[in-house]
Nucleic acid binder design. Structure first.
Lengths: 267, 267
DNA sequence: CAGTGGTCTAGACCACTGG
DNA sequence: CAGTGGTCTAGACCACTGC
């Protein structure tokens, strides 16, 4: 077997086995081939070689490209599909996941109506209250891995379901990757905000962490949600991450839960 | 190939292929072999042939038993492991998951301290207030797939972390499978309640669904949690299921979230 | 009908555990 | 060292999609 045209990552021994390319440090922490392939695919996703919604090359093509068997590529893709980064469709191909997909729209929104389907209430009315640029206070900067004082965009909005104000949200985004985002563009756009982030700014949110509390609104919040000061609300703080565990959005939401609830499935 | 000693589920054709044993109805909804094997393993788990914490037979043994290749057994086990029903340990074997495992204890409890580790606060103080037998009201019966009026056990308890009452919970359990459960046994037992359910009643909770709201306490609840009536609380309603999607527990919890939060990871 | 993902097999070898 | 799960391969065939 020759090894002249191989990608930089791996070279084969004469037995056909692969050498592990990272004997760094004391514990190399053995990384199987399929995981290395997974990382290569991940790099192509990050770099934008394959964009949200597009097909990626077939398993056979990738097997040839990476010089491994189809089964190994398959296992790499399996993991990426399990993480919702890729979407397999039998007979058609493997696609880069996107928040614009009809089937997975509002994937991160766990609020559900007590009766009936969420789909019946979507798309919700979205009132953008505000979109301004400011210096990140320490508390915001820390969660976004920025230096305090770095420039961030702050968006405020109210979501209404069936005419009833239900969610009051504040968002903070690092200003650099989202340069050019304005209240107008947010108002014009049809579809989930994360879909807009993908198409307009090339930022794909991959996972998120939420911290949930029960709180009472302050007078301003109560006014925007048209509730009184004694109405308890869910406080949902979300940090959303793009590839490489890079935090790209902080969102603080207040959810009115008298006709909706936050749903969670435990496994 | 002979097909005389095969388990009832599948017989091989001469080509080595397997016949699909369920051409029932209009759309047989093709079920691959590994999924049939998965169901067989699931049956052995339900029947108690392999109990929580025990090793199951090796992949090779199961392959022989079911007359399929190791790879097919492997794929079945992969799915069961992904659903947290089985636990693989390289070099040791595959084990039936259990809530008594140190590593996965309190798997369904998403409350976390704002600062520090949950482990530092465990085990919490658990005060069993009450454990009584009663006729299920319609609202409870419906969620537990019982007839209203069926006998259920109701348990009330308060969990305290670092000396502070933090969770007030009511549980409802169908009386039949939990016959013999008393406040005393709950008080004596060290470890998670779901572990007690496994060892004492052979009921393993496999998954759960939670509905979360923000509420204010009534005077009785406020007294038990030692808070005032204006302190908002998380209301967490959980239905826990055993094998076969059979609901076996309804739990209504009130979580105090001034120094804790409910954590959720979105993928 | 060709192309894609999905299933299944058989066999080789690797990494990890415990006696 | 034997036994377990974990990786990798090569090849065959199946189910689904769209031309």
């Amino acid at each position: 077997m020759t090894s002249d045209q191989l990608p930089a990552e791996n070279t084969k021994t004469e037995s056909g086995r692969l050498e592990n390319p990272r004997p760094i440090g004391a514990t190399p922490a053995f990384s199987p081939l399929y995981r290395q392939i997974k990382d290569l695919i991940l790099q192509s996703l990050q770099s934008g070689e394959w964009r949200p919604g597009e097909v990626i090359p077939s398993e056979m093509d990738l097997a040839v490209r990476y010089r491994v068997s189809q089964g190994t590529v398959r296992k790499a893709i399996d993991e990426l599909a399990a993480e919702n980064l890729l979407l397999r469709r039998q007979g058609k191909g493997t696609f880069v996941a996107t928040h614009a997909e009809q089937r997975v729209q509002y994937r991160f929104l766990h609020l559900r109506p007590d009766h009936g389907e969420l789909a019946a209430e979507l798309p919700a009315t979205r009132d953008i209250i505000d979109c301004k640029r400011l210096r990140a206070p320490a508390s915001i900067a820390r969660l976004l891995d920025l230096r305090s004082g770095d420039s961030v965009l702050q968006v405020s909005r109210v979501l209404s379901f069936a005419g009833r104000p239900t969610i009051l949200e504040d968002l903070w985004l690092p200003a650099t990757p989202f340069k050019g985002l304005t209240a107008e563009r947010l108002r014009e756009y049809r579809g989930p905000m994360y879909a807009l982030f993908e198409t307009e700014f090339g930022v794909r949110m991959v996972r998120a962490e939420e911290k949930i509390r029960a709180v009472l609104p302050d007078p301003e919040q109560a006014g925007l949600l048209k509730i009184d000061l004694a109405t308890p609300l869910l406080s949902v703080e979300r940090v959303a991450y793009t590839y490489n565990d890079l935090p790209m959005e902080l969102r603080r939401g207040l959810y009115l839960t008298d006709s909706h609830h936050y749903r969670n499935d435990l496994n």
